[in-house]
Structures are given as structure tokens and as C-alpha cells.
Nucleic acid binder design. Structure first.
Lengths: 157, 157
DNA sequence: ATGGTAAATAGTAATTATTCCTAAATAGGA
DNA sequence: TCCTATTTAGGAATAATTACTATTTACCAT
């Protein structure tokens, strides 16, 4: 399920990133948790084995794990709260470029329900669907993905 | 669509909350925007007509609007970032009580797509579905909704 | 209309999450 | 083993939110 040490090392080295014990430990902590941990939670866990660990390293590592596609941030809008006075059921279409949020009215999405199995364990009050992508404006003027300098010895796979 | 002054007044007064010009102005600003504004955005708008407005008032007002059910916060997890190493498609089930997040594997949810009309304007990279409710634990020991002292003159409708 | 009172506001300070900065440490190619 | 660019640790800076408190105000009772 989660990556082995060797797989992980490969992910890093293929991109010219160093494979450090801190990065390994943070990945391990994240991958072995089912609780969708916060930065602080990971910091606390890893700090037990790396007492000099800094928060910064956890932030950086998570950013790197996201960039190489082996972890994700599940809280898309954690930066600041956003509000809506429209109380009719609807969903959202979020542009990852300009952060614009469009309303999405769609009966099919409104009608989604939990599987009966999950349902009996939860009292569900609502659900949200958000689609992520680039709006036509941002899609055109979209920045090329951040380019790390590729090491000359890079092995394509 | 959005509430009239009198409807709004009623919402407040029925719950023993005072109907202040600041609250009205914040609601107006929120309801007349399609941009899902942040606290700061609302503050800037309303401050034009209420130069002494404080951020605190905007925060409080939004909290109140949420409590009485005439506005919502669309960013459920804005407080801190949460991460996941599981890269297989899945969705989430969030307990509003204990904030626990469970994974939800469901092919139907994975397969949701934008309506063709919306689709042609966006390059969609993914989507997420989150269900909100109370897990069985929290449902049992769930706090009764915060009780404001009901004024004796309260009119039931 | 007026006064009394609990609630709301403004303003500021405190807290929390995140980002920025820099010197020291180190992974990994040469 | 050496060199160097990257990474780390630690602390400072910033941004979002919450807490605190004196003053003001909405609104019920008179």
C-alpha cells in the first residue's frame, strides 16, 4: 500500500531530490496514519525519533511529497474561510489558478447519498462536491509547472 | 433570493438577537456577492459605509449568520491543513463533532463528472466529495445546541 | 418617550498556522 | 574522500483568527 524505502528513495533521486532520514520519517508517519494528520500531528510523531526536527522540515517535506505526487493535501481551502449566503443546495467549481469559486447547480450532485453501510454509522447532515481545475482564463496564461533543475544523470523511467 | 430587511430583522429578533446596522450591512455585502468572499473582503466592503467597523464584528456576525442558518462557510477545513498519503481515488466522511475524517471508497463518487456545459469552460483535474455529519459516538454524546436565553417575549411562528 | 440592561461593537492584545530567512549540516555525485 | 547544492534547524516575520475589555446601543419595561 504505502511505498517501501526503496521506492521512496527512487522517487526522490529520480528528481534530483535528496533522500533524507527526516523525509523518510515524515512519509512513514503520514503513510501509516489513517487520521489525515495535520502538520503538527506529524511533527509530534516524528519528533519522538528526531528530537531536533523542525516544523519547517515537516512543512517542506509535505510540500515536496505533494509535488512528487505521493501525498495530497485534502483541505483545499485551508488558508482562509470563505462564505456564502446562498442556502439553496449547490456545489462548487474551484479554479486552482485564480482561486475563483463558481457555484454549480446540479440535481444529480444534490442527490448523492452515502452507501447504506456507511450510512448506518453516521447521521449525515449534508455533503459537498467540489471540482478542481483551471478556468479558461487561467488555462491559457497558466504558469508552466515549477521547474527544478533536472540533474544531468536523471534516469527517465 | 436574499432576505429582505424585514425578514432579516425577524430572523434576529425571533432568537433574541439584536438587529444592528453592522449585521445588516455584513449580510447585505455577503448576499450581494457571488464571489464567496472572505472575512477580509467583507470587511473592506462594509468598512466603506461603516468606517469604525472592526474585523471582530465581521467575524462575530458571520458566526451568527451561520448559527441562524442564513449563511454558510464553504471552507470546512480552513483551520489547518490535513494530509493523506493514500493516492487511490477516494472521498471523505467528516464528523462535525470530533472532527475525525474517514475515508470513503465509492466508485459512483469517483465517476462524477461536470455537466458538459460547465466542462467546456474548465480543465478539470479532479473532484472531491465530502459528507458531513455526526459519527455514532458523537451522535450519542452530542451537545445540545448552544442555548441562548430565549427572551420571554419570543413569538413562535 | 425614557431608562435600564444585556448584548454588540471597536479597538487592541494574544494566539495559532504558516512562511521567510540564514547559518550549519549533509546527501550524494565527482 | 572531497565538494557543493540542497536540506535542515531554529528563530523571526506574517497572516488569520480568537480573546479581552471598556464603551455603545437595541430593545424591553415603564
Amino acid at each position: 500500500m504505502s511505498l517501501t524505502l526503496e521506492q521512496l528513495r527512487k522517487h526522490f533521486q529520480q528528481r534530483g531530490l535528496k533522500f533524507t532520514s527526516q523525509r523518510y520519517a515524515v512519509y512513514q508517519a503520514l503513510a501509516s496514519s489513517t487520521e489525515h494528520p495535520s502538520v503538527e500531528a506529524l511533527y509530534s510523531i516524528v519528533k519522538r525519533s528526531y528530537p531536533t526536527l523542525s516544523m519547517n522540515t515537516v512543512y517542506n517535506t509535505l510540500e515536496t511529497l505533494k509535488e512528487i505526487g505521493i501525498a495530497s493535501e485534502i483541505s483545499l481551502w485551508h488558508d482562509k474561510a470563505r462564505f456564502d449566503a446562498n442556502q439553496t443546495p449547490h456545489h462548487h467549481l474551484v479554479c486552482l489558478g485564480c482561486k475563483k469559486i463558481e457555484d454549480l447547480f446540479d440535481n444529480t450532485l444534490d442527490a448523492l447519498a452515502l452507501s447504506p453501510r456507511a450510512k448506518h454509522r453516521y447521521q449525515i447532515l449534508g455533503h459537498r462536491v467540489e471540482f478542481h481545475g483551471y478556468c479558461s482564463d487561467c488555462n491559457n496564461r497558466k504558469d508552466k509547472p515549477k521547474k527544478r533543475r533536472e540533474p544531468k544523470w536523471l534516469k527517465k523511467d
